[in-house]
Design a protein around this nucleic acid. Structure first.
Length: 164
DNA sequence: GCCAACGTTGGC
DNA sequence: GCCAACGTTGGC
């Protein structure tokens, strides 16, 4: 099976790419997805070795801020059974877990994030799920050419714009 | 803070 | 099964 490409959203105030970079093994479990469409991807489609665009949403400058690699494919999200967790789901059956997650490992933090505004101006990525009207899926498929185009944009931008 | 779009819930 | 009400997402 060829590797696949995904985009995962996170609110940087909750969990940012710097939080991921700060992990000793640069790895985290992607808990808290509570949407069936995204769940199906996490449980059934996403495989170890797949590539991920790390996206910051609901913040000042929404942007793809780096890439990650799936280090462990779908397994049950333990937080759904943790009464103290905000992700607790009393209706989930331990024998038939409702929610799944994957582990991801940081690959690269971009020197220059590729902003949502820039993506909207780029013809080669205009079909991305992210850019569709009303799209709120927090885990979504990305085409290889979209993934490659975004990497290219990040590289080009890092070269042409002074580092902060 | 506003609000459009979408998903979920629950009464019937 | 329909659909109104409600809650959430997320850009602006």
């Amino acid at each position: 099976m060829a590797i696949q490409y995904w985009l995962m959203k996170t609110e940087p105030t909750t969990y940012s790419i710097d939080d991921l970079a700060a992990q000793a093994d640069k790895t985290t479990c992607w808990e808290g997805v509570r949407n069936y469409q995204a769940r199906n991807l996490l449980r059934d489609e996403i495989q170890a070795g797949d590539r991920v665009l790390f996206y910051h949403s609901a913040c000042k400058e929404p942007a793809v801020v780096g890439t990650a690699i799936v280090s462990k494919s779908g397994y049950p999200d333990r937080f759904q059974f943790d009464k103290k967790s905000k992700y607790f789901d009393p209706k989930s059956d331990p024998d038939n877990p409702r929610w799944y997650l994957v582990d991801i490992t940081l690959d690269e933090k971009f020197d220059a994030p590729v902003t949502l505004a820039e993506l909207r101006e780029t013809a080669s990525v205009k079909e991305m799920v992210l850019l569709q009207k009303g799209s709120r899926l927090s885990v979504q498929p990305v085409k290889k050419k979209e993934f490659d185009a975004i990497l290219k944009m990040a590289k080009k931008k890092a070269k042409t714009s002074p580092k902060k």
